[in-house]
Design a protein around this nucleic acid. Structure first.
Lengths: 300, 300
DNA sequence: GGCTTCCATCGGCGCGGCCTATGATTCATA
DNA sequence: TATGAATCATAGGCCGCGCCGATGGAAGCC
């Protein structure tokens, strides 16, 4: 493999016109330059220069090699510049995958923060439920995954993944604003006889589990991942629901009443691949997310 | 200065997906690859890869560097190919400068020989009198100079220049075909009383010197570098002339008579810059010229 | 829990880079 | 012509760096 230092020497000789001048320009001793040229000629197998009086002159091959080398060295130089820009966060990329209600609440604030502090960083966003987000993370399709857990035991295959807790998200019982109930409004047992509207699959499982702990089995008549639709259904009197805080921050239907259920909640986490520290752009996004979580004010 | 071997290692790691596989592909030991990667990261100052389980994964910076490196390595490879073509005479260039009568006689034959044997070599031709040709040779405007000497003592500044004798060119007295002279036709003294037509400046000087040696001073009425015109002038009865053989090989006016003057002549030489061996393409041209000189048949 | 796989670290050996000193050649000058 | 200056090539020595084999530590698979 040819050595770039040698090429740099040849370029200097071509530019300066003599071995001695090139050595001076490179802060080398003159014999070092001579030696480099000898080795370079041996490597490429072509005479690169001929002695002319007490000086030298490049052959056609030498001129060709020097020209090409100059271009290659320039590319290497610009490569260094590119890498320095990456290192200095003047450029970069981070891909975030988040679950819907976070994408509507936390993510815009964090994204604004990132682009304000580091205009060069390109941020791309996509939406997915936690299992898909973790899968994408492992598959290197995204750099950060914003997920939630219902106090689930951490899955086994998360060794490579670093979780950063962001937020303890409360859960609310969502009921029609114009109805009255007997019993405490903030306890599930008060709605044991009602029809339920469930969110995504994992949320439904969590609902069933929470009701079971409260001593009843909920009658789930509707199931939709659209949390806007859930509130509309509740307001229309078709049932009651259990919704996480972020969905209510994102969207609040005037025809529903919210009652925060103590002892229930989800944990919102940011997941990145590998051990800390994460890559610089990912770390910037994580910092922006943690800086954002102080802000959301939970509904009533 | 970054090392191309390191870049090649990184490219192999990117391509193979693991350090061990890259080491195998490169016929390196695994620790050597690890070491290269560590050094490379230190040089560029950016993390290039992160451990993932028991394997590794390239960071964005690593991917960028590997991509750029692949391009650079490809250029180095094609550079080697170009140089090999130069070395193998499958390509190349040689610039010849010759005096007019040689350009009309020897050069076409030699040029045909060169392009027949080495179709890849680009041959460029130009015309100049010997002093200008030598100057161009020293100035690196041409690679080979075809010149003549009237037995001149070699000039002082020809240390860097290698002369290859090609041809001893005879000189002819050119007289009108329909005139008669008293005295031997092949001796200058027979034409002491005639008017003379001289060629180029150096030829005129030589003519005057030769006549002086013969014991008279020629009356030079016409002077032209156009050897075709010289014969036409002679044929028209405007004077006599002394022309070198090659000009007569190139062009023969039917109205003139030629008489070879023994003891007079020019030496035709090929000059190249520097000590032998000359550059390969120049050597090819020199060989073609020496192979050509056997051919010219001097007039009558 | 043991085995395998993978990467990082360590200690060595030798090649190769860079240096200073010296030789050889050529050009300029007295 | 002979001496001095300038330039490149060669020789010898020191030291850093690349490569290797051996070993250690972490993670996945049975």
């Amino acid at each position: 493999m040819i050595d770039l230092s040698r090429l740099r020497v040849l370029v200097a000789v071509a530019r300066e016109g003599s071995v001695t001048a090139a050595a001076e320009a490179l802060h080398y001793a003159q014999p070092s330059v001579s030696h480099h040229l000898t080795k370079l000629e041996a490597e490429v197998g072509v005479p690169l220069l001929q002695r002319m009086g007490r000086g030298i002159r490049l052959t056609d091959a030498g001129r060709l090699l020097a020209d090409r080398a100059e271009s290659i060295l320039a590319q290497v130089e610009s490569l260094h510049v590119e890498l320095d820009e990456l290192a200095g966060l003047r450029t970069g990329r981070v891909r975030l995958m988040a679950f819907p209600s976070a994408l509507a609440t936390l993510v815009p604030l964090a994204a604004a923060r990132v682009t304000a502090e580091h205009p060069g960083i390109e941020l791309s966003l996509s939406e997915a439920e936690p299992p898909e987000a973790l899968s994408a993370l492992r598959n290197n399709d995204v750099d950060v995954a914003l997920i939630f857990e219902h106090g689930d035991p951490p899955q086994r295959d998360r060794r490579d993944i670093t979780m950063t807790p962001l937020l303890a998200e409360p859960l609310y019982v969502v009921t029609p604003a114009d109805r009255t109930w007997s019993g405490p409004r903030a306890e599930l047992t008060s709605y044991a006889g009602d029809r339920w509207i469930a969110g995504c699959e994992r949320c439904r499982e969590h609902l069933v589990a929470a009701c079971a702990r409260a001593g009843f089995s909920p009658a789930v008549d509707f199931e939709t991942e659209d949390y806007v639709a859930v509130q509309a259904l509740v307001a229309a009197g078709l049932g009651v629901s259990l919704l996480p805080g972020l969905t209510l921050v994102a969207n609040r239907h005037p025809g529903v009443r919210l009652d925060r259920v103590d002892g229930l909640g989800r944990q919102v986490l940011a997941a990145v691949c590998g051990k800390p520290p994460a890559s610089k752009p990912a770390q910037v996004l994580l910092d922006a997310l943690t800086a954002t979580i102080a802000e959301p004010a939970w509904p009533s």
